[in-house]
Computed example of a mutant assay.
Amino acid sequence: MKRLFLAAACALAFAAPAVQVEAWGNTGHRLIGMAAVRALPDDLPAFLRTPEAAAEVGELSREPDRWKGAGQPHDRERDTAHFVDMDDEGRIMTDKGMSIDALPRLKSEYDAALQAAGISVNDAGYLPYAIMDGWQQLVRDFAYIRVLTAQAARETDPGKKAWYLADLRRREALTLRDLGVLSHYIGDGSQPHHTTIHYNGWGDYPNPEGFTNSRQTHGQFEGSFASRVASLQAVEAGMTAPALDGFDLRRRTAAYLKTTLAEVLPFYRLEKAGGFRDVDGRPDPRGAAFTVARLSAGASELRDLTVLAWRASAGASIGWPAVKVAEVEAGTTDPWLSMIGED
């Protein structure tokens, strides 16, 4: 994200020190990652379906915010992955920008189209591509896990078997890390301010309802307010039923971000009505419900995309020379040269 805020400490099943972060803050990102992993179905790999994996993904969900401060070009390139600023009609930045429903296949094409429209990519953000890239990486991780798991179980050569098992452990660790990174960007996509030109107060736009222009609104909502009202149990209770049919990555990503964009106006109306203030020393329940619903939306989407990545991995080809995952799982192809590397 392009704005820094101070988030309160998270206390879920453990305590963690308060640090300066971006996006939802420690609490929100941890909760999204943990709730999603805890909701994974039994047909996903067993290493994911443990309390330790849920806690690990929760921690790793904060990684893209913790990367910040490495210097340039690192920061400039990655900061803009946390958001996509759409106008009220779902177009990138202005009416000259493309619709979120018309995202080009490549980020380079997206960049070129924005530049041709006189829009800075750094101002617009590229969150859709961060989500899509993260999902595709998870598919690759799962494909390797399928191959390594299948071949380690049938390998009779002790040296090869030991290598397969060691590489499987490496890939499991990488998968948790990559799932955490995907969790972060999906979490960013569930926060209305990450999808709108009205990200720091309503801004210099027509404002007939008199919404706030306070530049503190964004940070207070996603950080201190969220940390006070959200809990793992509440986020899990608010998660929706899986939606896994008719999957298309670009369409799914656009629909997810449009759904969040539709919450921008309700947020500002609720803020104007005092929904993010305290009532008798306690957070207003209207604001609490709104916040938890957004976190639950992020957790639901992460759960679904993880399941869809696992399913997609069955049809992948990996390694070099490439081998088909399905053939290795069926026992008709030996993947040794593809896995160890043929120079």
Rank of each mutant, 00 (worst) to 15 (best):
R3N: 00
F5R: 00
L6E: 07
A7F: 03
A8Y: 04
L12W: 04
P17L: 10
A23P: 03
G25Q: 06
L31Y: 05
L31K: 03
I32Y: 01
M34P: 00
A35R: 00
A39I: 01
L40M: 05
L40D: 07
L40Q: 01
P45K: 08
R49D: 12
T50R: 14
E52H: 10
A53M: 10
V57L: 06
G58L: 07
S61Y: 06
E63S: 05
D65P: 02
R66P: 02
W67A: 13
A70Q: 14
H74Y: 15
H74C: 01
R76P: 02
E77P: 00
A81M: 06
A81Q: 13
D85G: 02
D87F: 09
G90S: 05
D101Q: 08
S108A: 14
A117S: 15
I119S: 09
A124K: 10
P128Y: 01
M132N: 01
W135F: 15
W135R: 07
L138P: 11
L138M: 09
R140A: 12
R146E: 04
Q151C: 05
E155Y: 12
E155T: 11
D157W: 10
G159A: 12
G159S: 03
K161W: 03
A162W: 00
Y164K: 04
A166D: 10
E172V: 11
E172I: 10
A173T: 14
L174G: 09
T175M: 07
G180V: 08
S183L: 07
G187V: 05
H193W: 09
T195K: 03
T195N: 12
W202G: 09
G203Q: 14
N207D: 14
E209K: 15
T212L: 06
Q216E: 15
T217F: 13
G223I: 04
S224F: 08
S231Q: 00
L232T: 05
A237I: 11
G238A: 15
M239S: 12
M239K: 13
M239Y: 08
A241R: 15
D245K: 14
D248S: 13
R250G: 09
R251D: 15
R252G: 10
T259S: 14
V264Y: 07
V264C: 04
P266Y: 09
E271F: 06
K272G: 06
K272N: 06
R277H: 09
R277F: 02
R277M: 10
D278W: 08
V279W: 05
V279E: 12
D280G: 02
R282N: 02
D284T: 03
P285M: 08
P285D: 04
R286P: 03
A288K: 07
A289Y: 04
A289W: 01
A289L: 00
T291S: 05
A293G: 15
S296W: 01
E301M: 00
R303N: 00
T306E: 00
V307M: 05
L308I: 06
A309L: 08
A309H: 06
W310I: 07
S313D: 12
A314C: 03
A314Y: 08
G315I: 12
A316F: 09
G319M: 09
P321S: 13
A330K: 11
W336T: 03
S338V: 05
I340A: 11
G341K: 08
E342I: 07
D343F: 12
